[in-house]
């Protein structure tokens, strides 16, 4: 059985003026795994089930009895954030698989972000700009209202 012939004719792309150097540079950006953990987490949240995974993860903070909605209402208690930061870090290091590691990093960065926004307190020993960059990369991949909450580190 024959299917109908495609009807779309070939038309040269008017924007096909990428030179070899630019194409090579852009292909280079696609090569290799994302090196930084925050980039890997952002990629995880862009996958087919990424947004559902993020929502499910954020629904269960790694602290017993902590309601995740309370994290969206500033100001969040600083000691709670310090504990959340420690728990996230522990989950990241003790993770048995990639998703557990991503979840640990997500809580770790969330705690740092909220502490910066609500208390101007840097919980991490990493350079402030490096931490802010990582938070923003992750924030860009999050659904709202979490995206907006983390993006506030940039204001």
């Amino acid at each position: 059985m024959m299917t109908p012939a495609p009807t779309t004719s070939y038309k040269p792309d008017p924007d096909s003026n990428l030179d070899h150097s630019t194409v090579s540079h852009l292909l280079g950006m696609a090569a290799g795994p994302p090196v930084r953990p925050a980039d890997a987490l952002a990629v995880r949240m862009q996958g087919d089930d990424g947004q559902a995974w993020a929502i499910k993860t954020l629904a269960k903070p790694p602290i017993e009895d902590l309601d995740n909605k309370s994290l969206l209402k500033p100001p969040v208690d600083l000691e709670t954030l310090r504990l959340l930061h420690r728990m996230g870090k522990r989950h990241f290091h003790d993770a048995k698989d990639g998703d557990e590691q991503h979840a640990g990093l997500l809580w770790y960065l969330t705690a740092i972000a909220i502490a910066m926004v609500d208390h101007d307190e840097l919980l991490s020993s990493q350079p402030r700009q490096e931490v802010v960059d990582a938070i923003l990369v992750v924030a860009d991949a999050l659904p709202n209202p979490w995206r907006a909450r983390l993006e506030a580190v940039d204001t």
């Binding site: 696609a30 952002a42 802010v132 960059d133």
Partner: peptide, 23 residues
């Protein structure tokens, strides 16, 4: 309306989408 540092992070975010699309 952002500074250069924020612009770099924004490009990094877009780059992750581009990376997946190329692959």
């Amino acid at each position: 309306g952002v500074d250069a540092a924020r612009a770099a992070v924004m490009a990094r975010t877009a780059a992750t989408r581009f990376r997946e699309a190329v692959r």
